[in-house]
Nucleic acid binder design. Structure first.
Lengths: 195, 195
DNA sequence: GCTTGATCTGAACGCGCGTTCAGTTACTGT
DNA sequence: ACAGTAACTGAACGCGCGTTCAGATCAAGC
C-alpha cells in the first residue's frame, strides 16, 4: 500500500528534516540510521530518498539552512547605533536565538567533523561571516575608544564561546530565568571588553 | 601466527587507548569501528578484547582517566593565596592543560551523549567537582569584595565556556602564540568578574 | 625438554547499515 | 472513465558492525 490519503509531499519533506534534526541532536549523526528516521517519520526507509539524495546531504542542508537563517535574522535584528548598544543587541540576540533552537545549535557545533570537505568549507564560510559581524562591532568600538581589547578577532572568539556556553546547561524552569541569565552574561561580556 | 616476539601486554594496552583516543577525537565514537582501531594498533580486532571488555568501556575509561588527571593536576597546581591570584592560576592552568591535550578534551566534551547513563553520571560528577573548585575561588573573591559577580555558579560556567573556546580554534604557529592568547583571555576574564 | 600461560589470529555469529528499484497505491486532470 | 503521476512499499544488494572463541604461537619456569 502507498499513500493512504491526500498529497503528502508538503508534509513529509519538512517532517523528515524535523525528525532528522531531533535525532541527530540527541544521538549524533553517525549513530542515527536512515531506518530510525523513517520509523519516526512514519514511512519506509526508501521513501526518505524522495526528499534527500543521501544522508550526508540531509545533515548539510540542516546546517546550511541554520546558518542562512542565523545570518538573515541578525541582519534584521541589527539596528545599528553606538557600538556598546550594538554589542548588547548582538549578545542578547545570540543567546535568545540559540536558546530557542537547542537542537539546531547542538548539531551546528557537534557535527562539523561529519561533513565532507566541501560541505565543511561552506559551513565554515558562513560561520566566519557571522563572526565577522561581531568583529565589526568590536572594531568600531575600539576605534571610538569605548572598547579596550588588544585583539578584536580573539575577543570575538572568546565572546562567542562564552555566549554559546549558555546553551549547554540552560534549561527553562531552572534556578534562573532566561532574562536574568541574559543580563548576567551581557554584563560579564560588557566588562570584559571595557577598560 | 601470534605474538611475533617478546611480551606485548605492556605495549599493546596503552597503544589501544592512544589509538582509540586519536580516532574518537577525529571521527567520533560512533563513527570509529573496533576493526579500525585494531588496524592502527597493528592487531586483529579480537585482540582488543584482551584490553577492554567492550567499546563503551573503552570510551568511558578515556573520559574518567582524563577527569581524574585533570582534578589531581589542578589540586597540585593550586597554590592558594588571594582569590585574584588563584583565579589567574586557574585560568592559565585550564588553558594550558587543555591545549596540551586537544584530543582528550575534544572527546570529553563531544562524546558525553555516547555514554551509557551510569557512565555519564560518573563523568558528570567529576566535572562538577572541577567546576566547584572554580566556584570556590569566585566565592572567596566575592566575600573579600575583589570580585563583583551576581552569581558565582553562573560566572563559573561562563568562564569555563570562554576558556574552553580556546581549544576549538587555537593552533600552534598561528597569528598569536599560546602565551599571548593566555594573557588576553585571562585579561578578559579578570575584567569580567571585576567591578 | 616440557608444561604453562600470556598473547594474538582468523573465522565466524547475527545483525543493521545506506542505498536502489520494481511494483503498488491513491489522487489529479481531462 | 481513464491515463498519468506523485508518493510510497517491501525486498534486496553488498558490506561492515561488535563480539566470541577455538586454536596457534611464543616466552618463561621448572
Amino acid at each position: 500500500m502507498a499513500r493512504k490519503q491526500g498529497s503528502h509531499a508538503g508534509i513529509t519533506g519538512p517532517k523528515v528534516r524535523d525528525v532528522a534534526l531531533r535525532l541527530f541532536a540527541r544521538y549524533g549523526y553517525a549513530a542515527v540510521s536512515m531506518r530510525q528516521i523513517a520509523r519516526e517519520v512514519g514511512v519506509q526507509a526508501g521513501a526518505l530518498y524522495l526528499y534527500t539524495p543521501d544522508k550526508q546531504t540531509l545533515l548539510f542542508d540542516l546546517m546550511r539552512g541554520h546558518l542562512d537563517e542565523l545570518l538573515s535574522a541578525w541582519a534584521e535584528a541589527d539596528k545599528g547605533g553606538p557600538p556598546a548598544a550594538r554589542l548588547e543587541a548582538f549578545a542578547r540576540f545570540h543567546m535568545r536565538y540559540h536558546l530557542d533552537r537547542p537542537d539546531t545549535i547542538f548539531i551546528a557545533y557537534m557535527e562539523l567533523r561529519n561533513l565532507e570537505p566541501d560541505n565543511f568549507a561552506e559551513v565554515e564560510r558562513l560561520r566566519d561571516l557571522y563572526e565577522a559581524s561581531l568583529i565589526d562591532i568590536l572594531d568600531a568600538g575600539r576605534a571610538e575608544g569605548v572598547f579596550q581589547v588588544p585583539d578584536t578577532r580573539l575577543a570575538a572568539k572568546a565572546a562567542i564561546s562564552m555566549l554559546n556556553g549558555v546553551t549547554t546547561w540552560f534549561r527553562e524552569g531552572g534556578r534562573l530565568g532566561q532574562g536574568e541569565v541574559e543580563s548576567i552574561y551581557w554584563d560579564m561580556l560588557r566588562k570584559s571588553v571595557s577598560g
